[in-house]
Write a protein that binds this DNA or RNA. Structure first.
Lengths: 200, 200
DNA sequence: GTTTACCATTGACTTAGGTTAAGATCGGTG
DNA sequence: CACCGATCTTAACCTAAGTCAATGGTAAAC
């Protein structure tokens, strides 16, 4: 049995934050999860594909980026213990523009679109989980949206330090700059400004 | 019966795009809708309140804005035939930072949080509708998010003209500027640049 | 008809981010 | 150790948006 190799503790803990379930539902759910190992720098998904999965990150962390005018623009990061997907592509079955890259050696548990739809039909608890996960992702995106609209790059950086220190601690600066919507040089200047004003 | 005054054709058409329903489900649903009339400039919701409703716009159009440093920042517009709510506040039961203002005399049908939860519990079709609506809103927000990250103000304006000409046609420019994340003067200059380069 | 309020535009000036190019730092590798 | 690539920083210059102030246009109010 392949599933005996899968460490399901993290995902179990995650799901139980959202819905109640019985052992039978859980067992059926774990049977359809597939484990995938991705080396540092490798891809979980590439632009042009329909995102056919929702991935739960058991180990490692990822970034999502677009390629615009031959330049990579980082859209988001996701860490161990969280779900990761291009939800709009997953939902609409349209090709994604995102590429999902492992920034460290990583291991994910994936759930395919068809299996997930089956879950929805067979088990009301999963329909509920799907709704709640969607809402959860929505809130995160709305928050990010507001930060892009209301804040200057400098304010966004300060906000990121406050709300996601893990990103600051683990992600290379040029990816952070991209995520903030600026060039690496600009982030350098911002950091310099902040350091200078702190000294006084 | 109050509901006999309510024009439910538009919302019926809207819902049927997402789920199948029988007459009984539909009748029960329409019973819990409340009609609200809002004069031009009036508020459907004000910052500080928990957004306790999802509104379907039967007539008129709205804008959502935040107040940041005593300045209004327009976050979105919504037109006749669409739903309008602060979904994150609605879902989390936390006070909203948004104010929703009618830009013309308007009429909406509102569905309260509690009634909606009842719908979810009583009728699988509504649980499904809730999930699909959430996903639909998600896709819209994700799209907007990308435009803020990848495009310059000028590109965002061009994109808005292409994707939501209705906004350009009906919304005052200073609100559009705010929506694009710039000052009215900057939008004026952008429009000027575009007009000039077209002339050549 | 005049006044008022609101909105869009324009000009002058400031400022922050983009661009380009050049160093600096660091880790890994032959 | 020396070399290399990747990353971060710094500097000089350019550009577009912010800010402030003034002007013009239009529609509602008096």
């Amino acid at each position: 049995m392949e599933n005996e190799e899968i460490d399901v503790e993290q995902i179990k803990e995650y799901i139980s934050r959202f819905v109640c379930y019985n052992d039978q539902e859980l067992t059926a759910f774990f049977k359809i999860l597939r484990k995938t190992v991705i080396p540092k720098g490798g891809y979980l998904m590439q632009a042009g594909q329909v995102c056919d999965h929702v991935a739960f990150i058991n180990k490692g962390h990822f970034r999502a980026f677009y390629v615009i005018d031959n330049k990579e623009v980082t859209y988001n990061f996701s860490f161990q213990g969280n779900f990761f997907t291009d939800y709009p592509s997953f939902l609409t079955r349209q090709p994604s523009n995102e590429t999902h890259q492992a920034l460290e050696d990583a291991e994910v548990l994936t759930l395919s679109y068809n299996d997930m739809q089956q879950c929805y039909v067979n088990t009301p608890a999963w329909e509920r989980f799907g709704r709640l996960i969607g809402e959860f992702i929505l809130i995160g995106i709305a928050e990010r949206n507001r930060s892009m609209l209301f804040m200057s790059p400098e304010e966004r950086y300060l906000n990121l330090m406050k709300t996601r220190p893990k990103v600051i601690a683990t992600i290379p600066q040029h990816h952070i700059a991209s995520y903030l919507g600026i060039q690496p040089e600009s982030l350098s200047r911002i950091r310099r400004r902040l350091a200078d004003s702190k000294k006084k």
